[in-house]
Write a protein that binds this DNA or RNA. Structure first.
Lengths: 325, 325
DNA sequence: ACATCAAGGTGAAACGTTTCACTTTCGCCT
DNA sequence: AGGCGAAAGTGAAACGTTTCACCTTGATGT
């Protein structure tokens, strides 16, 4: 490991001078600077990030903490964050769930964080967030001066979807939930049940977990019943797709037998047979908004501006009854 | 920022003792240890990762360097890497392309790296890799004691695909390339042209860039020609899907008018109309293999074992001629 | 001829840990 | 009673930077 000391020696200057030359700070003569740079190149020198960051208290890096990579879901959010980062001179670090809780350590390796991992306790977030370590959360409604929630406006889309189903005369609706510790799931469910309540509809609830297979399994229960629902709202698209698969296997057809609606507008939802009606949002915009707010806080020290990302119902085949006349 | 010094003072012990207690090393009495832990909790102490890592020369973290997140492609590789990491007590950091070349610094924040970003020059990789910083590359054929390429066996799948097309009597084949700086693209193209050469077929080559739109655009050129090809091989699925879209818009139908083959077996390829014939591999296994090799090198210091990830042709609708009798 | 100043450069402290080498205490064995 | 060793604890150096405060030199203005 070559250090700045080696570079200095090789260039025949002091460590201080070498540091100034390498960072283009201080007042160093052109000739000397060049000598240092050459020495650094020759020795294949790379500064030690730890030593550097220990001294300067900033890393110019933001960290994103997610649960996992699979699921087509994070991808666009990350892409949105990344696009914003590319326009700044910050670095981006994405850190998935890891075994050791030592992950906490990692927190200090970045100037600010974006959290989207329900396994991280609210308490941890509260403990860590501070003026020097602002946190944007995408998966919980937690807020103070240093914690900013950027959430989907789940209610908006769900209301539109309910309206759409109701308008078509559907009255026997069921709801398949996602993971119960998910904020989005909770809000989707609550809104849907609320809307139904306004019309005095009782909506049976089945528990899923946001995976395709859990939608399929919920379908096994639902489709075995004596009386089938005429509409099923799934808390995300993957479960809707699982549900459709189960229907298909039993010779049932959406929307004629049961209208199906999902949530998220994942790419696949447009390509299934039938195409899945769903509730969409721009996840790229979501990630970008989060990143922008965080960077702004870090840079210009503006304060956090809570906001909701709009969602809207996308009417597709799986829920659109043919003209019955 | 509370430091270990504060904790020590608060617990009435020396800094050394506090450190030992917090790390569960050294010989510290039960009572003292508890006192320190309590103090740390009370002060909401989190060790400074930089100071720590500066001293210990290991971070117990591996870094993955990719170009971007979008594309459904990295997702599974990352998932594979992540799964392996979860079984160890390493941490995982994923770092996409960023503006400043300062990213080099980041390199030193991890014990080893997995590189999948053709924007990173071979030279950089060569410069950085060392006994203390092993690198696994997924996108180039670079190799020495500290650099391990884990590559797709592109040739295998491409040969099978060519064979499939040829067997069906197709002779007027075209090739649409991906990004020209991509190793995989080069290998796919070379193999395809090679195979064609063996049968004295001349294959026109059109340049794309791995995106759906570039496949669509290449199609505009190809489909405008007087004589259409009877088969088109696209260097990845997204371009194949773009190509199919263009065909659809012109009322052409695969495979009857033109047989189409992609590469990668992205989830979508199974859901399009018609389903896309493609060449698949387990990207999860790919990522997992890379991670495993890297961790093994880091841990048990086994040396690197070069290997290729197998690929195989998946025959689907877009290239399978109906019985013509 | 002398003070002043800018330009170019340097020594050493500091960042927050870990860890080596050392000290003290005390119970136990012979 | 003396010696020994384990257990519990500590002081200080070290990791590789950055940066503050300072020094030297030579040119400039008066």
């Amino acid at each position: 490991m070559t250090t700045i000391r080696d570079v200095a020696k090789h260039a025949g200057v002091s460590v201080t001078t070498a540091s100034y030359a390498l960072n283009d700070t201080g007042t160093i003569g052109e000739a000397t600077r060049k000598r240092v740079l050459d020495a650094a190149a020759e020795l294949n020198y790379h500064p030690n990030a730890f030593a550097r960051n220990l001294k300067k208290r900033k890393t110019h890096t933001i960290g994103v903490f997610i649960a996992r990579f699979a699921g087509s879901f994070y991808e666009e959010i990350l892409e949105g964050i990344h696009r914003v980062i590319l326009d700044t001179d910050y670095e981006l670090l994405v850190c998935p769930e890891s075994r050791s809780t030592r992950r906490m350590l990692l927190h200090r390796q970045v100037d600010g964080a974006i959290v989207f991992d329900s396994k991280i306790a609210d308490e941890s977030v509260l403990n860590l967030a501070s003026y020097h370590f602002p946190i944007v959360v995408l998966d919980r409604d937690l807020q103070n001066d240093f914690i900013l929630p950027i959430l989907l406006d789940n209610a908006q889309g769900v209301r539109q979807a309910f309206e759409h189903l109701y308008q078509q005369g559907l009255r026997r609706m069921s709801f398949i939930t996602g993971a119960m510790d998910s904020f989005d799931n909770a809000e989707r469910m609550q809104t849907f049940l609320n809307e139904a309540g306004k019309h005095n509809l009782r909506v049976p609830v089945y528990e899923g977990s946001f995976t395709e297979i859990s939608g399929y399994e919920a379908a096994q229960v639902i489709l075995r019943a004596a009386e089938l629902p005429d509409a099923v709202f799934c808390a995300n698209d993957q479960m809707a797709i699982g549900f459709l698969r189960a229907m298909h296997e039993r010779g049932l057809h959406a929307p004629d037998d049961i209208a199906v609606v999902g949530f998220d507008d994942i790419p696949l939802s447009r390509y299934t047979q039938p195409q899945v009606s769903t509730i969409g949002t721009s996840r790229i915009e979501w990630g970008a908004t989060a990143a922008r707010q965080l960077i702004d806080f870090l840079e210009k020290e503006t304060s956090f501006q809570p906001q909701r990302i709009p969602t809207r119902f996308l009417q597709r085949e799986s829920s659109t009854l043919r003209d019955r006349s």
